[in-house]
């Protein structure tokens, strides 16, 4: 059974007639890196927002871990699936960079020493240590992006969805991010990378799903499937 399963999912934004997604069938496992690629406006962001319950499908069904997504609260989804938004500004809300990284853990009752240890680790890894006490929205685009990723990773979710994670990152930071993501993938965490960045996708993804005009145009297939072997 797939971790995340979409069956004939369709969606249109309220008050806009046009369908953004049409009858998407997709099953994703927890142990692989899937890339979702496609032109701007193809519906990639919308599709991932449906997967985490921020938007509700107008038709079809989504199941997470075998249960209908509609039966989960946002908090329950957030603990299973870490989501990094395309625009980091919408997900940074704390007073300092360190608080931002520790937010999820602190509010889920982790011990302060343990939270501190994780904050320190992620500050170091994403080279944000000097900004420890800086107001997150004062950071540059690339720094905000790294912080948003760090804050989600610090929660250690089972599955990750990153929407255009390399936007605003330089080549060196892209490599750091790729290394880290591959490391956690080896630990058995699945992820979806939404990206235009072909070299990044080529290097990272085991499966590539192309989305165009709200439909799946091609799918290299799940591991073990014939399509994947081909």
């Amino acid at each position: 059974m797939a971790f995340l399963e979409l069956t004939r999912v369709s969606f249109s934004y309220p008050k806009r007639g046009r369908r953004v997604l049409t009858e998407i069938d997709l099953a994703l496992d927890r142990d692989e890196i899937t890339a979702i690629v496609g032109p701007n406006g193809g519906g990639k962001t919308t599709l991932t927002k449906l997967m985490i319950g921020v938007l509700q499908p107008s038709g079809g069904q989504i199941r997470l871990d075998g249960r209908p997504l509609a039966g989960y609260s946002l908090g329950e989804i957030g603990r299973r699936v870490g989501y990094v938004f395309q625009n980091p500004d919408v997900q940074l809300f704390c007073g300092t960079v360190a608080e931002e990284i520790g937010f999820g853990l602190t509010n889920r009752g982790y011990k302060p020493e343990m939270v501190e240890e994780r904050i320190q680790f992620y500050l170091d890894y994403f080279e944000l240590g000097v900004y420890r006490n800086v107001f997150p929205l004062h950071l540059s685009r690339g720094e905000k992006q790294r912080l948003a990723i760090a804050a989600v990773l610090a929660n250690e979710p089972l599955f990750l969805i990153l929407d255009e994670p390399t936007a605003g990152l330089d080549a060196y930071r892209k490599k750091l991010l790729a290394d880290y993501l591959q490391k956690i993938a080896r630990l058995g965490r699945g992820m979806i990378l939404v990206s235009h960045d072909e070299p990044f996708v080529g290097r990272m993804a085991e499966r590539v799903v192309a989305l165009k005009d709200g439909r799946i145009q091609s799918d290299s297939g799940r591991k073990g499937n014939a399509a994947y072997e081909a």
Partner: peptide, 17 residues
């Protein structure tokens, strides 16, 4: 409304706090 969503997506059960 963005912040309320983002907070919950970090795994915090706002309704149950």
């Amino acid at each position: 409304s963005n912040v309320v969503t983002a907070v919950q997506l970090r795994g915090v059960e706002l309704k149950k706090v």
